[in-house]
Design a binder for these strands. Sequence first.
DNA 1: GCTTGACCTTGTAGTTACTACAAGGTGCAT
DNA 2: ATGCACCTTGTAGTAACTACAAGGTCAAGC
Lengths: 132, 132
Amino acid sequence: MRIGQLARITGVKSETIRFYEREGILAAPPRTKANYRDYGPAEEARLNFIRRARDLGFSMARIRELLDLSDDADRSCAGIDALARSHLGEVERKIASLEALRTELGRMIAACEQDTVGDCRIIDALAGTTEP
Amino acid sequence: MRIGQLARITGVKSETIRFYEREGILAAPPRTKANYRDYGPAEEARLNFIRRARDLGFSMARIRELLDLSDDADRSCAGIDALARSHLGEVERKIASLEALRTELGRMIAACEQDTVGDCRIIDALAGTTEP
DNA sequence: GCTTGACCTTGTAGTTACTACAAGGTGCAT
DNA sequence: ATGCACCTTGTAGTAACTACAAGGTCAAGC
């Protein structure tokens, strides 16, 4: 698969794919005899991973760490454990925030359906004013 | 409360707070007679909201929309409903991705506890290769 | 009363993670 | 042989900060 097709499938621009390769986050794929990048499903999965992780607010550095967990299959269990736990903590905090936001958005939509608008507590949902 | 204290409480740097004010995402607070910015709990909540939303991968434009939902209490129900629904969709997608990632990180940690390492499926968790 | 530290201003420049475009070249299908 | 997708290197723009500089104000402590 060539870069253009991979770009269409994943929604990541060709230039961004080459950028990820330059940054070392996506391995340089084999080339065709015409020197075209030749991608397979593994690269597609990895690129999808990167795109979604970015969308979730993880930095490139953090994504690099997550990908290292995946790549270095033969690293020490202690290392994996510590890193995985740290990432898990961040993930759980994000889920909790998003669930608060989801609840509040749902509440607003429900109120709207009954034409009762009500006041918006979106800020409170994420601000954490309830747990001081 | 002055800018330095607000920065310490929220973990947002003073310069970033002033940047948000320039960008119109955080209203200019009243000033003391010494021309110091004078913040109250409402600004603190709003700033916490902005910081967490950014951390969750929402753009400034998206955050502006969310804050508008909160600010324009007297807008039409139809407008609120459409915007809230669109945000809710994004939030739910993010939650689903994070839950897949949480599951995978949890699995790795559990495997480590039994000294069985196992192979890492972190990429698959976010790549969406299971739903083609 | 004078120093110290936290704040004020404007302005410039660096960082991250892209995104866009230019210039010049290759491969391949119609 | 024309056109399109790709190749390269390089520069520059964007978003969302982050940092630092220069010069000024204010209030507390010695």
